[in-house]
Measured scan of single mutants.
Amino acid sequence: MGKSNSKLKPEVVEELTRKTYFTEKEVQQWYKGFIKDCPSGQLDAAGFQKIYKQFFPFGDPTKFATFVFNVFDENKDGRIEFSEFIQALSVTSRGTLDEKLRWAFKLYDLDNDGYITRNEMLDIVDAIYQMVGNTVELPEEENTPEKRVDRIFAMMDKNADGKLTLQEFQEGSKADPSIVQALSLYDGLV
C-alpha cells in the first residue's frame, strides 16, 4: 500500500471509500495523518498503546488498548495497516448500531470462538476500569469489574449457560440505554 507515500493510489482510495462510511477526501485526510504518525505505514501494539495513554492519562489503558489493537489487526500480523485502521474507525465512528455491536462482540470474544464467556467479559471490564482509573464515580452495584459483569450476565445471558452469543449480546445491549450510549460516543466526531 505504498508504505511511506503521502498519497494513496486512486484505486485504493476508491476501494476504501466503498468499504467504509468515509468520502474519498476523508480517506485521504486520514491517510495523511496516519502516515505522519506512522511513517512506516504500520502501527504496532506499543504505538497503539501510546495513543491510548494520551487519551487516558489518569488510568492505565495498556490492557484495553491491547484488546482493541487485536480487533483492529484483522489479518493478525501484529501490525495495523491503514486499510485495517480506516475500516475499524469507520465501523466504530459511523457504523450502524448492529455493526458497532458486532465489532464490540469481537472485542469481548477474546478467543474468537463465537461466545463471550464470563471470564472474557471480566478481562475486558477489568481493563476498562484500569483505563479510566479513579476518574469515573461508579454506583455501588457496579464499583468492581466483578459486580459489573454479574449485572451484565444477569441481564443478557437469557439461557443461563454462562456465555453470551452474538444475538444475546446484541439484544441485551439494545435493551440497556447506557450500552447504546457508550457505543454512540464516537458518532459525529469524525
Rank of each mutant, 00 (worst) to 15 (best):
G172W: 12
E26A: 15
D113A: 12
E84T: 07
S184A: 13
K9C: 06
F56Y: 06
N5R: 15
P177I: 04
P145L: 05
Q28P: 11
G133R: 08
L138F: 08
L185Y: 05
F67T: 04
K63P: 04
G162W: 12
V27R: 14
F55Y: 02
W103T: 15
A160L: 12
K7I: 04
K147S: 09
Q29W: 15
V13K: 02
A45P: 04
V27D: 15
F85D: 04
G47R: 02
V68I: 08
D111H: 04
E142G: 08
P57K: 04
N119R: 12
E140W: 13
W103R: 13
M121R: 02
V12C: 14
K50N: 10
Q167P: 06
Y31G: 07
Q87I: 07
L110A: 01
N119I: 07
I35K: 06
E99S: 10
L16S: 15
K63S: 03
T62A: 08
F153V: 07
T23S: 02
G133N: 02
Y115A: 14
E168Q: 04
D111T: 08
N143K: 06
N70R: 12
F69C: 11
Q28S: 09
P10D: 01
G47Q: 11
F56C: 05
E140G: 14
E14N: 02
G59T: 00
S178F: 09
V68Y: 04
Y186L: 03
F48L: 10
K53M: 13
F82Q: 12
F56S: 03
Y52T: 01
K50L: 05
E74L: 00
V149K: 05
L189S: 10
G78A: 02
Y186F: 11
E26M: 15
K9N: 05
S40G: 14
R94C: 09
K147Y: 01
D73T: 05
N5D: 03
I128M: 04
D98G: 09
D60K: 01
R118E: 10
S173L: 15
F85T: 02
D176E: 10
P39C: 03
P145C: 10
A127Q: 08
E146H: 04
V68D: 14
L189I: 11
D44K: 04
K50C: 07
T20N: 13
T62F: 03
V149E: 05
K9I: 13
N134S: 10
L164P: 06
K63A: 02
D44C: 08
V91F: 10
A88S: 09
A127L: 01
V91K: 11
L122Q: 12
F67S: 09
Q181A: 15
T117C: 04
N134E: 15
K106Q: 10
G188Y: 13
G162T: 01
E120I: 11
D77V: 06
L8P: 01
M155K: 03
